[in-house]
Design a protein around this nucleic acid. Structure first.
Lengths: 155, 155
DNA sequence: ATAGATGCAAATGTTTTGCAGGAAA
DNA sequence: TTTCCTGCAAAACATTTGCATCTAT
């Protein structure tokens, strides 16, 4: 488990910033690290509450902001307007199934290069980008191969 | 002005769907069509009110949904959580300046092809995508070449 | 002891909905 | 005159903030 590394990273971040090590922060970090994919503030608080009732949204959100600042988490904003947090790791983009919610990460050097050319063409300096592909995953195509209308989010 | 075309498209859409042609809808469509780029519901209502006081957010939002359904407008969700509407036209993606808010449209066949390959690799069926590049435009680099920290909130 | 953290309630900002009155067909 | 629209107020949501209280250090 490389979770220990992250635990330590948080500890030193807290120390460096004169922040306190609390029961709540530890609980939230543990749940967050145990999640492999992406998790919303809402679901995070539900899971944290299983073992630590009483921890409210406020603390969840404040702590996640802390983890993001510490470089341990990255916030992601997909098409549904809910912030999801993922463990910070190498740059990548996402492929999302609009039926089951599955999220797959991908990375493509060719696209990155194409982006650089586009940015250069318009004289921009690129800071970040977001690239999301929305569709139906293989499983969902199998289960209901004939899609009628996906209510999710137009376009 | 090809606006006439759009006026007619709306008229026949309304007719086909048993919807009524009202003063408000006309006013909103006119302002919307007069905007070249992307506009938020908020700004749209401010502009509509200049000539038609009394029109509220409710009608703006309801009408924009109508225009989207009619295929005349497309809703866009960028990084700041505010819906922007643009006149529906050929597929394209966006390059956004996080300092001044400028929005440039781009289109890249090579990226589209790369996307298709990625989607195929994971067995997905692609429905739509969003690809946004955030950075500083040439003008903003010139005015304040040394960027310190740009809050993610680039309205 | 004291800076910093917590949790509740209330506020935020954007978009939507319930409802009663108003206008197009 | 019936059906569809409108505007207001209030609700919905996800997230944030004010504030009094509590707790690591």
């Amino acid at each position: 488990m490389s979770h220990e590394i992250e635990q330590k990273a948080l500890a030193s971040y807290l120390e460096d910033h004169n922040l306190k090590h609390t029961r709540q922060r530890e609980a939230i970090l543990n749940v967050f690290l145990s999640v492999k994919g992406h998790i919303t503030g809402d679901e995070l608080q539900r899971r944290v509450r299983e073992r630590h009732p009483g921890i409210g949204y406020t603390t969840i959100y404040r702590t996640m902001k802390l983890l993001c600042d510490a470089g341990l988490a990255t916030p992601r904003h997909f098409d549904d307007g809910v912030t999801r947090y993922e463990i910070e790791h190498e740059h990548h983009d996402h492929l999302l199934c609009v039926r089951c919610g599955r999220i797959v990460e991908f990375e493509c050097q060719m696209i990155e290069q194409a982006q650089d050319r586009i940015v250069a063409r318009y004289g921009f300096r690129l800071l970040r980008h977001r690239h999301e592909l929305y569709g139906h995953c293989a499983d969902c195509q199998r289960h209901t191969p004939d899609a009628s209308a996906d209510a999710s989010d137009g376009s």
